[in-house]
Write a protein that binds this DNA or RNA. Structure first.
Length: 317
DNA sequence: AAGCGGGGCAACCGCGTAATC
DNA sequence: TGATTACGCGGTTGCCCCGCT
């Protein structure tokens, strides 16, 4: 035989909100035992409570414990939670060990009610911590008028709210991909994720046909930096690298969350430019960027990218 | 002033794991 | 060693409060 059954299955056990008397009885009982709880199962009876031991444990750990910090989360705590969540996922209890006085339940609730929504507003997937794919935004417009660069540009023009250089660049990549059947833009995507080239074998690999393509990409991205990030999530996360906020209990512990954040492909001057330059329409960005590209492209003639768009009229999507 | 809806949070539920017999 | 169950955790629910109409 194993252990004796838990009291939680008793019909007469009280559920629901705790009263002050119950709180007092629980706190006094635990204090009488030096703050130690031998067995949660036996505690209710010993403390004179008509509660399940499980309920007592929850009440103590989430509310009555003397070392619980009350009040709003600080900005530092919020950043730390985001960074830890990027590293650990929904391991709320593990995350809670990195925040003094905060419970897993409190952090979980704060995540679901505040941080999650904030990330979504910023265009960041709260599960993967990656930018939401631009096609989530463009999807409707593209579906409405597939195959037409004008329609794509029109859709892009509606994206004035995009708020990060990376997202602009990804959107530009999507547009190129859309008009070219996912070919010439594969190399651009590769700058964001090396795995993309494997996942999406290019029909026409820009990296292989354009010398110094990485540099040219950077120039293109620098152009994209004409957009001023309203609230640059990645920049905020990157700042975690400068903070000793992730305690490392031992050498085998996971690296700080910042290490898992993909390195920004943008040089510092791009980010600086992003801060200086005013926001402009995305269609302007695209047309200007395309105007700029020929000068970066030493292999193709100056109409390479323009032709790419023009010819897309004749390419199936 | 009353009704309604959404947000926030405490508490419960259910499952996986560890502990115990 | 297998059966049983407490414990701990993440997910979910439901109540309360507040702002809006």
């Amino acid at each position: 035989m194993g252990r004796s059954p838990c009291c939680c299955h008793d019909a007469g056990v009280k559920k629901g909100p705790w009263t002050e008397e119950e709180d007092r009885a629980l706190v006094e009982h635990i204090q009488r035992h030096g703050g130690h709880v031998g067995s949660w199962r036996n505690l209710p009876k010993a403390a004179g409570l008509n509660r399940c031991g499980k309920s007592c444990r929850l009440r103590w750990t989430n509310y009555l414990r003397p070392d619980i910090k009350r009040g709003n989360f600080t900005a530092d705590e919020e950043r730390l939670i985001i960074a830890l969540h990027a590293e650990l996922g929904n391991k709320w209890s593990t995350i809670a060990t990195h925040l003094d006085g905060r419970t897993d339940n409190e952090i979980k609730n704060y995540w679901n009610t505040h941080i999650r929504k904030k990330l979504l507003r910023m265009g960041v997937d709260p599960v993967t911590h990656q930018r939401l794919p631009p096609d989530d935004v463009l999807g409707g417009a593209l579906a409405a008028a597939p195959g037409l660069p004008e329609a794509l540009l029109s859709a892009a023009a509606s994206l004035g709210g995009l708020n990060s250089v990376l997202m602009q660049a990804q959107t530009l990549q999507l547009l190129l991909q859309a008009v070219n059947g996912g070919a010439a833009s594969a190399g651009l995507m590769a700058s964001f994720s090396p795995a993309v080239d494997n996942a999406m074998p290019p029909l026409l690999n820009a990296s292989s046909i354009v010398p110094n393509f990485q540099d040219q990409q950077m120039n293109l991205l620098a152009h994209a930096a004409n957009y001023r990030p309203a609230d640059d999530y990645l920049s905020n996360l990157a700042s975690f690298a400068e903070q000793d906020v992730v305690r490392q209990p031992n050498a085998s512990a996971p690296a700080p969350a910042a290490a898992l954040v993909p390195a920004s492909p943008f040089p510092q001057e791009v980010a600086a430019a992003a801060d200086r330059r005013p926001v402009q329409g995305f269609s302007d960005l695209l047309s200007e960027a395309i105007d700029q590209v020929p000068s970066m492209c030493s292999l193709e003639d100056e109409h390479f990218w323009k032709d790419l768009l023009a010819e897309s009229n004749h390419l199936p999507l």
